[in-house]
């Protein structure tokens, strides 16, 4: 496992998320130059009122998506720890989606390659937007050590139920 020194991580506090999806807008404006929620690398799920769940790549220490990619289109950015997609190699086979414990990578109509959070090179637009709105549900922290971050890598519907039980008891 490569060193995580100097790498960042996006921490979410579900109780602070308002479900506004400003993060999706900021992400698509940054990466696609337009407001394109479906092409956002972060997605907010809200199956129940008041239980929004922002969902995005948490950079698993073992990077199962990278190992699963048959065309070697995915690689780890050693500076940030983010998973980078080589857009010329990706065939949209979805192997990475299957391998991901949270089904995070997105296959979107109109994009020729899979979409995965690249941490904006170390300065994530989603976090800046969430901070700007004063919600602070997303924050940048130093990349945590070990496998604990996999707690944040569950499928969104599982997290929705967990958040719901906390909101409504």
């Amino acid at each position: 496992m490569a060193s995580t020194q100097g790498q960042i991580w996006v921490l979410v506090d579900y109780s602070l998320c308002t479900g506004c999806r400003l993060c999706e807008i900021a992400c698509s404006l940054k990466h696609e130059g337009v407001i394109w929620p479906a092409a956002s690398r972060i997605t907010v799920y809200e199956d129940y009122p008041g239980c929004p769940v922002p969902h995005y790549c948490v950079q698993c220490p073992d990077y199962p998506c990278v190992s699963a990619c048959p065309t070697k289109a995915l690689k780890v950015d050693q500076n940030t720890g983010a998973v980078l997609v080589d857009t010329s190699l990706c065939t949209l086979c979805s192997s990475c989606v299957q391998a991901c414990p949270g089904r995070v990578p997105k296959v979107v109509k109109g994009k020729q390659y899979v979409l995965i959070c690249d941490l904006c090179g170390g300065d994530p637009a989603c976090v800046k937007e969430c901070t700007r709105a004063g919600y602070n549900a997303l924050r940048v922290i130093r990349k945590p050590q070990g496998t604990a971050i996999k707690h944040y890598a569950k499928p969104p519907e599982v997290v929705v139920m967990e958040v719901c039980s906390r909101v409504f008891g």
């Binding site: 308002t18 506004c20 400003l22 807008i25 009122p49 008041g50 700007r132 919600y135 909101v167 409504f168």
Partner: peptide
């Protein structure tokens, strides 16, 4: 209030709140 603040799409104001009450064994959201 079970959830505050709560926002609609692209809203930096978040004036919504989710309230929860129980009356006569019925839960109202």
């Amino acid at each position: 209030w079970a959830k505050n603040p709560w926002a609609d799409w692209s809203c930096p104001l978040a004036c919504m709140k989710v309230s929860k009450v129980g009356i006569g064994g019925v839960t109202y959201l």
